[in-house]
Simulated assay, not measured.
Amino acid sequence: MTKLVLTLHVLAAIVAIGPVTVAASMFPATARRAASAPDGEAIARARILHRICRVYAQIAVTVPVFGFATASLMHVLGSPWLITSIALTAAAAGVLGLLVLPRQHAVLTALTEATAGSRIDSATTARLAMLTGVFNLLWATVTVLMIIRPGSTTGA
């Protein structure tokens, strides 16, 4: 049972977190291009990237669910590396849900509004790129903790 739940945890992480990190990383540059040469196609690309981020962020909820199940089956819920991973996962979810996704939405709103005052500047997309980088760094750290954890029985 442990192997099945661990497999589902890893697959959920790959399938859900991977697309979010890629799409979120692509969004700022796509938004800059759409702002500099606004056309329907450029804005549509930014809209699609935002939608990918939103949908896969919702699917990503399964990652900690399977993670908690795996940790429970392995009897490691109190391990410091796991508690650190949980805290970093919560931080990554907070960065994505409270900072990245709302800013992406605001950029899309600015791109689609007709008023000149709603245009975006490079500082806006640069901040969004920085926040996305923080999100990606948090997930990379969690991944490393999951692979190289203290007390690992893999012998690696």
Score class of each variant (00 low, 15 high):
Thr112Pro: 00
Ala87Asp: 03
Ile86Asn: 01
Ala35Ile: 05
Ala46Ser: 04
Thr62Trp: 14
Arg32Phe: 08
Gln104Asn: 03
Trp139Leu: 15
Ala156Leu: 14
Thr125Ser: 09
Ala156Gln: 08
Gly97Gln: 09
Val107Thr: 04
Ala29Asn: 12
His105Pro: 02
Ser118Trp: 11
Ala31Leu: 06
Pro28Phe: 05
Met146Ser: 07
Thr143Phe: 15
Ala35Pro: 02
Phe135Tyr: 15
Trp139Val: 12
Gly40His: 13
Met26Gln: 13
Ala93Glu: 14
Leu49Ser: 00
Ser72Phe: 15
Gly18Tyr: 12
Ile86Asp: 00
Thr70Glu: 12
Arg47Thr: 11
Ala114Trp: 13
Ile148Asp: 12
Ala42Lys: 14
Val61Tyr: 14
Leu82Trp: 15
Ala29His: 09
Met74His: 10
Thr112His: 10
Gly94Cys: 08
Thr112Phe: 05
Gly133Met: 09
Asp121Ser: 14
Ala34Trp: 00
Ile86Gly: 08
Gly155Lys: 04
Ala60Thr: 07
Gly155Val: 04
Met1Leu: 12
Arg51Gln: 14
Val100Glu: 03
Gly97Ile: 04
Trp139Asn: 10
Ala71Trp: 01
Ser79Met: 11
Leu11Glu: 06
Ala123Tyr: 09
Ala87Glu: 08
Thr143Asp: 07
Phe66Ala: 12
His75Ala: 13
Leu88Glu: 03
His50Val: 01
Ala60Tyr: 07
Lys3Asn: 12
Ala110Asp: 11
Ala116Gly: 07
Val5Cys: 10
Ile43Cys: 00
Thr153Asn: 06
Gly117Arg: 10
Ala60Lys: 05
Cys53Leu: 04
Ile59Tyr: 13
Thr132Phe: 02
Pro38Met: 12
Leu128His: 06
Ala60Pro: 01
Arg54Leu: 15
Leu145Glu: 01
Met1Gly: 09
Thr112Val: 10
Gln58Asp: 11
Arg32Gly: 03
Leu111His: 00
Pro19Val: 07
Thr143Lys: 05
Leu137Ala: 15
Ala87Tyr: 09
Gly151Trp: 06
Ile83Glu: 11
Ala116Thr: 13
Val95Leu: 06
Thr30Tyr: 01
Met74Gly: 03
Trp139Cys: 11
Ile86Met: 15
Tyr56Ile: 02
Val107Phe: 00
Ala92Leu: 10
Phe27Asn: 02
Leu98Asn: 09
Leu101Ser: 02
Ala60Arg: 03
Ser152Tyr: 03
Val22Thr: 07
Gln104Phe: 01
Ala35Asp: 12
Ile14Ser: 08
Val20Leu: 10
Pro150Cys: 03
Ala57Gly: 13
Leu99Gln: 11
Val134Pro: 02
